[in-house]
Design a protein around this nucleic acid. Structure first.
Lengths: 228, 228
DNA sequence: AAGTGGTCTAGACCACACT
DNA sequence: GTGTGGTCTAGACCACTTA
């Protein structure tokens, strides 16, 4: 009903009346509205009512959510493709080893890919997966591209959440070639650790984004009286 | 009880037993646990139990939350101070005007400040406030520093939420002087629009952070089976 | 099979905003 | 004062995991 703009930017019916209208209890209505409120679509005002916030519908890429690279590129109206850049089995980079809690002896698979939008390179991504997680034989082609399916099929692992550090960075010579941009131009660098539902780190990624193509936004709610 | 590590990284008592233990109903317990689960402190497993995730307690600065600059600096163990850089009343910059939905005739207050940690400049911030919001007389000194109190005291406005765009950028000559860093070095740029609870934009900010001093992290939950 | 979290109900009282 | 959202209760059934 909100999507059909039956209320526009205006006020929603009250909780009791919505409950009656939809034939459910007020608790159920509240649960749904709380979810929409947390995502920012609804704004609730104690004593006054609940209002639609069309604002946030315009946000393209929300940082709090994890997207498939290919979907992200499609969503911005481009065709997506992947170019595989390298695959290694051996001692991982120190940052990756630390994040994945690997010892000096442990090995890992390191795979790197470039994602293109309409044949323009826009994301460079390096993924590191601990070798001991791999349970089944696999073809190296399975690591040419998105790796989450590999984790599920060959490691019986599923990423439940990420902790992502967002950093600004500048393209060095290598990155400028990979992403076809000028050396020194600014890039998003996301350093991401993926955890399974047992809180074990199962994948480490470094992702470089060309900022001209992606706009990352966050809805930040105020908690105290803050300054800025 | 979680903070006192009564459960460590382990499993919490079940919902019914916690409810009995604390003398409340199960619904109340669930509501509390849902909040902690959304913030990432708890991980819930259907049919299995609820587990503590000490991981996220280590995150210093969470991007989803809005912090006072001064508090942020204190939290990282430094002493904070502010240097005022400029104050203007007049036509705002085009981006600001657009974000604040101002017409060609409308005026705005533009104030800029540098925040220091142990006397090292670490944040440069430009705030734009529509002039028509100002309801009371004020001293220009009130705009030397955090502006949220100004919004409350002189505009009777309170920011309810922000939409922040995160961008990588490089220091130009001006920024490199303001932040005492090399020209061309990478900086966080946050472009932030603050809204009141009526969804009206009331403040526009551009914030530049020296990335050596701040580490912004986000907990991103998986929704579908995604790729990366 | 037993125990866990996930969902829902029907009712109550409170805090707050409007008029 | 009336109506709104915020909180809480006591109970029920379902879906899932684990042993």
């Amino acid at each position: 009903m909100i999507q059909e703009k039956q209320f526009g930017e205006g006020r929603l019916p009250s909780e009791p009346s919505l409950a009656k209208l939809l034939g459910v209890s007020r608790g159920t209505i509240r649960q749904a509205m709380e979810q929409l409120s947390k995502s920012g679509l609804l704004v609730r005002k104690h004593g006054a009512g609940t209002y639609v916030n069309q604002q946030v519908l315009n946000i393209q890429t929300r940082l709090e959510e994890v997207y498939d690279f290919v979907e992200m590129i499609h969503a911005s109206g481009h065709s997506a493709s992947v170019v595989h850049k390298g695959l290694e089995l051996g001692a991982p980079e120190t940052n990756a080893a630390k994040a994945l809690r690997l010892g000096a002896e442990d090995e890992a698979i390191t795979t790197s890919n470039v994602f293109l939008a309409d044949n323009v390179p826009v994301i460079y991504c390096v993924d590191v997966i601990p070798a001991h997680l791999v349970k089944h034989a696999y073809l190296s082609e399975e690591l040419h591209g998105p790796v989450y399916t590999f984790l599920e099929n060959r490691c019986a692992q599923r990423v439940s959440y990420n902790i992502t550090e967002v950093r600004p960075t500048a393209a060095d010579k290598n990155l400028s070639q990979l992403l076809a941009c000028l050396a020194g131009s600014s890039l998003h660098l996301f350093i991401e650790i993926g955890f399974n539902s047992d809180n074990q780190p199962i994948i480490f990624s470094e992702e470089y984004y060309r900022p001209e193509f992606f706009s990352f936004k966050v809805v930040r709610k105020m908690i105290p009286s803050s300054s800025g």
